Simulated assay, not measured.
Amino acid sequence: MPSDPSMVDITRIYYEPAAAALPRGREVLERWPDATLVEVPSHWQIPELHGDEANVRRWVRIKREALVLGVKKSLAARPNGRSADFIAPSTANGCAMACAYCYVPRRKGYSNPVTVFANIEQITGYLDRHIRRQGAKQEPNQCDPAAWVYDLGENSDCSVDALLSENVRDLVELFRRHPTAKASFATKYVNRQLLDWDPQGRTRVRFSLMPAHLAKLTDIRTTPVPERIAAIDDFVAAGYEVHVNFSPVIVTDTWLQDWAELLDQLDAALSPAAKEQLAAEVIFLTHNAQLHEVNEQWHPRAEEVLWRPDLQETKRSQNGALNVRYRFRDKQRHLEQFLELVHRKLPYCEVRYAF
C-alpha cells in the first residue's frame, strides 16, 4: 500500500489498546514501525490534538504526521435520502486535508487528523446484514434508480483514508458482492491506487469540483482541480461509477463566469463513456461563525470569499447547529441560475441533488 508523504508521513500514533489488539490495528502499527506510540483512553479525547484552537498554526503538520487508532463504538446506517439512501458507519474520522469551509472540525477539534477505526470486520459485517435486509430497491429516487446507495465518507475523505489502511478497499470489495447496493464517497484527492480494485460498478466516486482559483484559496492540501477532472476517465475505465460534486458553490462577483469556464473544461475533458454515466450534486456554501473566527487566525484570505455578511443570513441546520448561508431568496435565484448553466453546458449531466 504505497503512501504519499506529502499528504501523510506518520510519526506519532495515538491508539486505544482495544484497537491496537485487532488485526487491522496491528497492520496500521506495523506500517509505521518507527512512529512514536501514545496510548489514549479514547480517540475522542486527546487534548494535544482536539479542541485546542491554539493548534491553528500547527494544523498542517498535525494532519500530516499524527494518526489516531480507535474502535467505532456505535454502528448504525442512518437514513439520508439526499446524496445517499443511508450514511454508513464510519471507518475513519477526520482528514489530512484542511479545507477552509469544512464542517467536520467543528465536532472534533480543529486540527482533527485522521482516526482509523480498527474494527473493520464488525463494520463490514453490520453493513452486509443491513444491505441484505433491504432487499431490492422497489422505486427509483434521486440517489439511484435501482440500487440502495450508502455514503462511506461522511466525516473523512476515503481516497486519503486508503493511504492509511485497507478499510476502504474492504468496503469496495463488500459492495462488489451486492447487486442491490452501491457505495458512494466524495473526494478531493486523486488516489490512483483505487484504480486496481475492480469495483465492477458498485462504487460511486464523486469528485468535488469548483473553479480552480477558488479551490487554490480554500481547498488546502487537496489535489488541484485540473488533476481531479483528468482522473475521471481513468476511474470510469477502472469500473467505478463517477459523478461530480459542484461543491461548495461560493458566490463572488464573477461566480457564474468562473463556473461556465469550469464546466467547459469538464465537458472538453470527458470521454463519451464518462459523459454517458455522469451525474452531479450541487451544494452551495454553508459557513459557521466559530469556524470563521478560527480561520481568521491562519487563513484570513479565504474568509474574504467565505464570510460575506452582506450576502448571508443565519440558519439552524438539521443537526441543530447555527450556520450562515446565502439569503434564502438570493440563494433560490442563484440556484436557478446555476442549474440553467449546468443544463446548457452539460446537457447530458443529470443533477441528482441541489441544495
Rank of each mutant, 00 (worst) to 15 (best):
L22F: 03
A18L: 05
I13A: 05
V8H: 03
A20R: 09
A18R: 14
W32Y: 15
A18P: 03
Y14E: 04
E16L: 00
L29F: 10
L29Y: 08
L29G: 07
I10K: 05
I13V: 11
S6R: 13
P33H: 05
I10P: 10
S6M: 09
I13N: 06
E30H: 12
A19E: 01
T11M: 05
E16A: 06
S6D: 14
I13M: 01
R24E: 12
E16R: 08
R12W: 01
P23T: 09
M7S: 09
S6E: 15
E27P: 03
M7P: 05
R24H: 13
V8S: 05
L22E: 13
D34R: 13
Y15K: 04
T11S: 11
A18T: 07
D9K: 15
T11K: 14
P5I: 13
V28S: 08
Y14Q: 02
P17E: 14
M7N: 07
R31H: 13
E16W: 03
Y14D: 05
Y14G: 07
D34W: 00
Y14A: 02
D9W: 10
Y15M: 03
Y15D: 00
A21M: 01
W32L: 07
R31S: 13
V8K: 02
P5H: 10
M7R: 15
W32I: 04
V28D: 06
Y15G: 07
S6G: 13
D9T: 01
E30Y: 04
V28G: 09
A19F: 05
R24T: 08
T11V: 13
A35W: 11
P5V: 12
G25L: 10
R12E: 15
D34Y: 03
R24Y: 11
T11I: 05
A19G: 06
R31Q: 15
R31M: 14
R12S: 06
P5S: 09
A19I: 11
L29N: 06
E27V: 03
E30N: 15
P17T: 06
P33C: 08
E30W: 05
E27T: 07
A21L: 02
E27R: 12
I10G: 04
D9N: 15
D9Y: 10
R31D: 06
P23K: 06
P33I: 01
R12P: 00
M7K: 14
A20N: 02
D9C: 09
V8W: 00
G25S: 13
A21Q: 12
P17L: 08
I13L: 04
L22C: 09
A19W: 09
G25V: 06
D9M: 10
Y15P: 01
V8D: 11
D9R: 14
W32G: 02
G25F: 10
D34K: 14
A35Y: 13
E27Y: 03
P17K: 12
W32T: 03
D9L: 12
A21C: 03
P5T: 11
G25W: 11
M7L: 15
E27S: 11
E16G: 04
T11Y: 03
Y14T: 00
I13W: 01
V28C: 06
R26M: 11
P33Q: 08
